Amino acid sequence: MTYRTSAVAAARHSRGGRISSLDLLRGVAILGTFGTNVFLFAHPGGPAGFFQDFVGTATSFVERAEVGLRVLTNGKFLALLTILFGVGLELQYQSARRRGVPWPGRYPLRAGILFLEGVAHFLLVFEGDVLMAYGLTSLLVAYLVGRSDRVVRNVVVVVGGTYAALLLAATASLVAAPEVSGEPAPVDPSATAGWPAQVAVRLNEFLLLRAEIVLIVPSAVVLFLLGSRLRRAGVFDDTVKGGRLRARLLILGFAVGLPLNVLTGFSGPDWLLVDRYLLPPLVALGLLALVTHLTLRMRGEPGFVRSGLIAVGRTALSCYVLQNLLAGALCYGWGLGLAERFADARPWWIVGLWGFVGLVNVAFAVAWLRRFERGPLELLMHRLYAPRPADRRGPREW
């Protein structure tokens, strides 16, 4: 079976009981998220070294080029992935209602499994894991998704408003603070030389390295609920109402969010909180609308690119972990050590690294789906979750 044939078969299968644009969007979000993480892996000192260097304002052409590449992805695809997770939660809620199954029922077990997978991913693979935050958020939102629109709206306004106000206040404080001059701390390549040492650091500095969860969970609560309500509002439907909603999201994302995000992205590290956490969700909404619109307008069998993205979307959890594992093996000293070898070639070689890992992900997803209905980690979660026979029907969304 050729790659083309198997990929088309996977794309066809994705339509059975699923919203095809969701698989495509999820594939875009997974590969796009790696577009942010790849800069952490490609630093000679690993993620810690990257943030040590994240001071001052870019001045040279190379530094500005790297900032520009980071602006393309930073936070946007993570926000898109978060919104899609909320859509998946909504689909599971609606499926439970149709079958008369109590909600949230056994879903907290599923959230707990996802959290534990995130703990393992954090300790063994990557400090920037998001699965732990998703596990916590899904546990909270599972009890909110079925509430009235009024309750959900109040939660979104209170949580989102408080979150935005705190981040803006912190940003104002950073901008107003006196500028501290000085050189970044020297990079220590030995920090990524040994895998056991990396695991030990993650374990010993668990609370410090997981501090970002405090920033991710409130935002994720809002975006999960937003994804749920967008699904109900018909954003994925080929209707006049759905088209109007997508048009509004396109304006919000690309006419409002994107210009502001580019501005903050080039304004220096004082604007990091706004650049990564506040504005990217607006751009993500535009991306969701754009990809959905294009998918609804496409006719005929999916081509190479669309088929590959759909395959990645159907194995999203596995591909998320795989791309981080591959990047660690390629970049860190315990692997091929490419981060240190190509330190002088930043940021250009990083684009090639992203492309290579993305192609491997696509090839893996397509090959795996030739024989299995779910990705390997999705199969593991399904077996651990082990729904009762009466609960097996309905959408299966990561």
Rank of each mutant, 00 (worst) to 15 (best):
Trp398Ala: 09
Arg314Pro: 03
Arg202Lys: 09
Pro218Ile: 02
Asn204Glu: 15
Tyr163His: 11
Leu225Arg: 00
Leu80Thr: 07
Pro186Arg: 09
Ala29Phe: 01
Leu225Trp: 01
Pro104Trp: 02
Gly253Met: 09
Arg248Ile: 13
Leu296Ile: 09
Glu183Val: 04
Met381Ser: 14
Asp237Ala: 14
Ala172His: 13
Asp129Glu: 10
Phe122Gln: 02
Asp270Val: 11
Ala42Ser: 09
Ala170Gly: 11
Phe364Arg: 00
Phe85Arg: 06
Ser20Phe: 06
Leu279Met: 09
Leu223Gln: 08
Gly146His: 05
Phe51Ile: 10
Leu208Ala: 15
Gly135Cys: 05
Gly56Tyr: 02
Ala9Cys: 09
Ala79Ile: 06
Ala390Asp: 15
Lys241Ile: 14
Ala29Trp: 01
Val214Pro: 01
Val145Glu: 05
Leu72Met: 15
Ala177Gln: 07
Ala343Lys: 10
Asn324Phe: 00
Leu166Ile: 12
Gly355Met: 09
Arg297Ser: 14
Glu373Lys: 13
Asp237Asn: 13
Leu109Gln: 05
Ala9Asp: 09
Leu230Trp: 04
Ala79Trp: 02
Ala176Val: 11
Arg110Asn: 09
Arg306Tyr: 02
Gly257Cys: 13
Leu80Met: 14
Ala7Glu: 02
Leu336Asn: 13
Ala343Leu: 10
Phe224Tyr: 11
Ala386Met: 12
Cys331Asn: 03
Leu139Tyr: 06
Ser60Arg: 08
Gly88Leu: 00
Ala386His: 12
